[in-house]
Design a protein around this nucleic acid. Structure first.
Length: 223
DNA sequence: CTCCAGGGGGCCA
DNA sequence: TGGCCCCATGGA
């Protein structure tokens, strides 16, 4: 069971919530990363792992000049695994990075400024072994810069605690739909909204020490 | 010590 | 599709 917070929010309030959070917390400047390659690689490395550990892995790759799809594809898999060890699941993730690098080179010549429909792009990304919905959507939004809404564990937990959704068994795409129906289709908004949710999730809605009483959302709802 | 963090794939009924 | 297991490190 997950705790709930009174009063409750409705899915119709999601755009209002965004505007309030943005006014209150300001831009979050996501996704951290100097290049699209770095951003997309980070999206895979952060699977079920804290960002702090991912930073170490990225730093190792950057130091070796390996934030490059061609080099990742050619690199010895075990060596790649050692470099990304701090991010955990290193054997699996080494293979995932190779799968993704090969996909990007074959499909788009390693480029991100492609004029492909975002849903077609999503289908293609989901066909890569190691890229699930959240990872695909993160890559589409933050590297390809197309308006796809990213749903993560924080998003689900926050919506659950504020009564927007009833059950944590709700499907990923069903949660995303709540946002597509409530807010304008806009890369900037989707970018900031997800980042704001992570901010709130980390600081006020973590599983272990939920500081619901100090949560900005609780204060904002009182309008 | 236990539990969790910005998941995803494989297997099986 | 729904449930279950595996992957693996670092931090609270």
């Amino acid at each position: 069971m997950d705790l709930k917070v009174e009063p409750q929010l409705s899915s119709k309030d999601l755009f209002l919530l965004y505007k309030h959070l943005y006014d209150y917390l300001g831009p979050q400047y996501w996704w951290p990363g100097e290049t699209k390659e770095e951003i997309s690689i980070g999206a895979i490395l952060t699977q079920n792992t804290t960002w702090k550990n991912v930073e170490k892995a990225i730093e190792n790759l950057k130091r070796e000049g390996l934030l490059d799809f061609k080099k990742i594809l050619e690199l010895d898999k075990d060596y790649l695994a050692q470099l990304i060890k701090p991010s955990g699941y290193y054997n699996q993730k080494a293979q995932k990075l190779k799968n993704f690098a090969e996909f990007m080179l074959k499909e788009f010549g390693g480029k991100f400024d492609v004029s492909i429909d975002k849903w077609s792009l999503r289908e293609k990304l989901l066909s890569v072994k190691g890229v699930g919905k959240e990872t695909a959507d993160s890559i589409i939004l933050y590297a390809f810069e197309k308006p796809i809404f990213v749903v993560d564990a924080y998003t689900k937990r926050i919506l659950l605690r504020h009564g927007v959704i009833e059950s944590d068994k709700i499907e990923y795409d069903e949660i995303a739909k709540l946002f597509y129906l409530s807010i304008p289709e806009d890369v900037k908004i989707y970018n900031e909204y997800h980042a704001l949710f992570v901010n709130i999730g980390k600081n006020y809605c973590s599983k272990r020490t939920p500081k619901c009483n100090e949560c900005p959302i609780k204060k904002l709802i009182k309008d």
